[in-house]
Every structure is written in structure tokens, then in C-alpha cells.
Write a protein that binds this DNA or RNA. Sequence first.
DNA 1: GTTTGTCATGGCACCGGTAACATAGGCTCC
DNA 2: GGAGCCTATGTTACCGGTGCCATGACAAAC
Lengths: 337, 337
Amino acid sequence: MTEAITRNRQPSMADVARAAGVSAQTVSRTLRDSPHVNAETRRRVLDAVGQLGYRYNSAPRMLSSGRSFTLGLVLLQAGGYYSRSAVTDGVEAAARAAGYSVSITTLAELDPALMEKALLKLSDQGVDGIVIAVPLISVTQRMEDITRDIPTVTVDGSRTEGARVLGIDQHEAGRIATQHLLDLGHRQIWHVSGPDEWIEARQRRQGWQDCLAAAGIDAPPPLEGDWTPESGYRQGRIIAMIPEVTAVFAASDEMAFGVVKALRERGRSVPEDVSIVSVDDIELAAYCHPPLTTVRQDFYHSGAAAVAVLLGADGDPEPAVRQATLTIRHSTAPPAR
Amino acid sequence: MTEAITRNRQPSMADVARAAGVSAQTVSRTLRDSPHVNAETRRRVLDAVGQLGYRYNSAPRMLSSGRSFTLGLVLLQAGGYYSRSAVTDGVEAAARAAGYSVSITTLAELDPALMEKALLKLSDQGVDGIVIAVPLISVTQRMEDITRDIPTVTVDGSRTEGARVLGIDQHEAGRIATQHLLDLGHRQIWHVSGPDEWIEARQRRQGWQDCLAAAGIDAPPPLEGDWTPESGYRQGRIIAMIPEVTAVFAASDEMAFGVVKALRERGRSVPEDVSIVSVDDIELAAYCHPPLTTVRQDFYHSGAAAVAVLLGADGDPEPAVRQATLTIRHSTAPPAR
DNA sequence: GTTTGTCATGGCACCGGTAACATAGGCTCC
DNA sequence: GGAGCCTATGTTACCGGTGCCATGACAAAC
């Protein structure tokens, strides 16, 4: 029994110190590469560390410094696997490079109550900063309280009093996509948007509308999807029944897949009968039929930049908004005539 | 200056206790819903908590209990956005339900040194358990050391002395896919595999080979990809030049996208000229052209099950291996003859 | 020879929540 | 009316790494 307990308890610095015949303080200095440690002493300490299998325990430092060297990342379960993974990679890589860990929380759906719970949990964990990759719309008092106490950056979307917002210019993304279709000669340009609760979705739609307005064209009614290919398919079936439509701007690649499928089923081919532009440039966008013309977004960079803002000096010159760029493939062409 | 310091320091239980005129212990009891607290006292404590904006600090408990209520998750940056997201969601949801946080680490590539660093970092963080969603092949001594000290479960792939392995039966997945093609009447069934360092890739290939062998057919040489659609495209161009081939088993949906594109470019249509089966059943598999027949894998469940094993009783009856199931769509048909 | 400085090291307090034990008041039951 | 018990609350010690200060040894400078 005693053996089990002994084996269960991890060795502490004091144990190492005893084994090496020095004080715990010297062990600490050795492990943190302090210059004021004799080479011979260092060797003895490191030997003892190896012998006992000592491993660093971060809890005490957390306790006394009040910092955890952990960042919280809030994600939404819906809304595109690609963007989530890419943002996560960017956040994680940047955090790791700075010696921070990343603790993730996923929201099952876009709900202020869930968001509150997620933030509260991260707060209890004692994270040093939070990256919100969720387009929250309504901000509650409690969210304000937390984001005031803990440095917070939002990637694409929400606005709270304390949080800085960092994102890709979605209005511009919508404009670029629409302008490309206008340039090809299209006039009947419909839009399959993301859900209205997403700020990105609203901004892209607004970019589409403003671009059409600038060309003197009345925007047709937008059709709302939920980012899934299934919703694109549903709205695509409606579009397929309207002969005037020669072009579609889909708010995400995945919805574009659905739209293409629906059009094909109705005998309308892309891009001969209908052109499609979408947004994201996921990996598969180049490998479907036809390869999608799409507005590229660098999610990885967004995630990394968010961490840089959290950890960097307050007045850093990193631009808050980045531009999206158009990738032209084969889903767009001039209208048939 | 004093004000800045005061504002900077978060209030502790002692502060709350002082404000409420009780001891810190009573505050602790109140917040943990101990039954031995007078209703009036409880109210006073909660008032003080609200007043001061007190928030729980988990570091001391970590320190004295030696547990962090955090699980580590190791992912690989390559290898399919869908599966990573789904595994992550499953792990996170199950962990959250049990009151645990999830700390992620992403490996830029499949490299034992990076894996060691990742495990070491999680160990330093003091995680209570580790889920490895990376198909590590070579296991170093240091990995063994860590996975012996910290409960570890591997999803799909690796084997270390201490870690339990949990996964989907990949050999069976390869067999099911191949058998489907055999049943349709195909005899020239080629395979685009995943990278050889991945255990899943090897197992699927083995399932394909064994299934062909059972039917008395010599397996053609496998073509190796790296899970990306681009690699599928590259190998697809080779396959397109071999007229005898009437069916392809691709080890992932994303590679299947590439194969289809290559075949189409060479004028060979799917499924009329060549049938394709793949593995994963990502969301877009149903929305490409043609919709893919594919072997479905429930990654979400795998992630959740891994956490259940970590946290559950040692002798739980959860099966270590789960079955994959075939979803038939339109990328497969009998050979043209 | 005294002062000053540097280096290697040790001692001790501290961070904050909680287990374990102590205490005091009130109630029940024989 | 005292033994026994329950409830509400307080006190103390502990977890383990590190900041801060103290100490002793020796060298260099005056």
C-alpha cells in the first residue's frame, strides 16, 4: 500500500534536491538555466532528475504568479470543418511558439447561454487570454464582464466592449465575388447566404448588394442557407427553376457544392448555363466538377494573428482587417447570351 | 499605483469571506453546495461574491489534489479536416460533460521527435489523461515513459506499452469497400492508399489485398497518396491510362475527389467506365458529382469513446474496435462489359 | 588590512482552495 | 439531566515552485 502511494505521488523538486544533496532552490535554478549554478552541481541535479523521473509541475507557478500560460479558444461546432481546423491550427501554432497552451471549447450551437457557459468555464480555468472564433451577435452583460477582465480577441464577428476584433473583410469578399460576375457580363446574380445570425454572412450579403447597387442593379431576394451543402442544394433547387438567373454567389464553398448538384439535376450546367462564385477556397474546391472560382480566406493566418494581438504589445501595428483574394477556376464564364 | 495593483489582483475567497463576515472555509462550502451552510449565511456569501466579482481559481486545487481536470489531445495537422474536427468535437463534448477541459497540441508532421515534445509538454501541463489521434509508428522510450505515467488512449493507430488503443476496424473497412466492388462484378480493382506511415493506411490496404486474395485475384500494385485530393489526382492520372482498370478503392474521400477529376480529364466517366469507393463519408461526399459510395466512419464517436475509456472504470466493456459501414451512392456500378 | 563586489547556494514566505480536525450550540432519547 | 449526535462554523496545515533576502567564500580594489 505504501509502495502504491509512493509510486503514485510524482517526485517534487524537494525530492530531487534531497537526492542531489542540494536545496530545492538550486534545483529550480538548474532547471531554469540560471547562470549562477556550478557545472558540477548542475550535473548532480540533472542526474537526480533523470534518476527519479522528475517532471515539472506548473500548478504552483500558476498559483503564485496568477498566470496559467494557457489561452482559451472558443469554436462553433457548425460552420465548416475547414475553417475551424485552419483557425485552430493557426492559434495553436502561434500559442505554442510563445510557450502557451490552448484549451478548446466547442459550442454545439450559436446560443448566448452556451457562450456564457463557455467563457465562464475558461475564466474558471484561469486562461490568460481568449480567442473567440464564433460570430456571436447578442452580447450579454456577463460576457462583457469576462472579456473585460481577460484579454480577448474575436476572429470574424462579434463585438464586445472589451474585446478586440480581428478578421477578414467580409464585405469586400462579397464585393469581389459579385464584381467578378458583373465583369463577365452577368446581370441576374443571385445569392445563397449564410445564416443571418452570422456577422460574416450579413457582411458578405451586404457586399453583394452594395456591388449590385453600384452597377445600378436591384438585388434579387437573398436565399438563406446554413453553410451546409444540404442547404445549398435546397436553395439551388429554387434557383434552378428560375431561367433568368445566370449567376450565383454562394457564401461558402460547401453550399456551392449543393447548388451545383441541384442545378445539374435540373439540367443546367455550370458554368455554361449558370456561373457560381463562392467563398473560402477549401482544399476540395479545386477538385470538384467544375473546379470552383472562389474567394480565398486565410484562416490560419487569422488564428495566428489573433494570438499575436493577445500576447503582443497593445499598440501593435497589425491591421485589424485583412483582405480576401479571388481565385478564378472554372465555375464562372460569360453568360450564354 | 496601489489602485492598479488592487484592480489587477483578482479577489480571493479570503476577500469574499471578509466581505461576508465569515471564514474562507464557509465560502468554499457555499460555492460547492455543501449542505452544512445556513440559508442566511449562504445569501450573504453569494452577495459578497457578486459584489466583488469573485471567480473561482482552479490552480490551488490542482496543486493540492495533483489533478488538473484537463485532458490532452494530440492531433496531426495533415490528414483530413473532417476527421480531425469530428474527433476533436467528440473528445471535447465527452470531456466537458465530465467536467474536464481539453488542451490541444497539433503536430506539424508525423515525426517521433515532435510527438515526444508534444507529450512532454502535456505532461508538464499536468494533464490527467491523453488522447492521441495520431498514427504514430515508431514509439520511443520517452513516449513509453510518459504514457506509462499518464493514462493514454490512442484513436486509430499507434501502440505503446501503456496506452490503450481504440479505433475503427480499418482492415474491415478496406474489405467492405473491396467486396462491394467484387459483388458488382469488377475484377481489376486498384487501390490509392494513404501514406505508409499511417497504420490506418496499411490496414485498409491489407483489407483490400486480403479480400482480393479470397476471391482468387492478384492485387495490382498499390498507388500511395498522402490523403490530399492533389495526391489522388496524381495517382488518378496513372490509373486513367490503364484501360483494364474498371474500379478504384481510394483510402479517403478527399483522394477520391482527385481520382475522379483525373479520370474525367482523360475522358473516363464515373461510374460508367470506372467505379470508385472510398472511406470516411465526409459531408461533401454526397454533394460532388457523382456522389461517392464510401465507407462511413464515426469519428465523433471514436473521440467520445476515447474519453470514456480514459475516465471510466478500468474494466469497462466498451469494445476497442468499432465497425465501419458502407454507404452506397452513385460512384459505383457494374463494369461496362 | 579593510572594503566592495560577485558567485554559489540556502532559508523562508507566499500564492489560494480545501481536507482534516476543532468547537460551540442545540436537539433527541433514555 | 447527561450521553450522544447533528449542524454550522472556524482554525490550521498542506500542496510545490519561486521571489526575495541572507549567508559564506573568495577575489579584486583601495
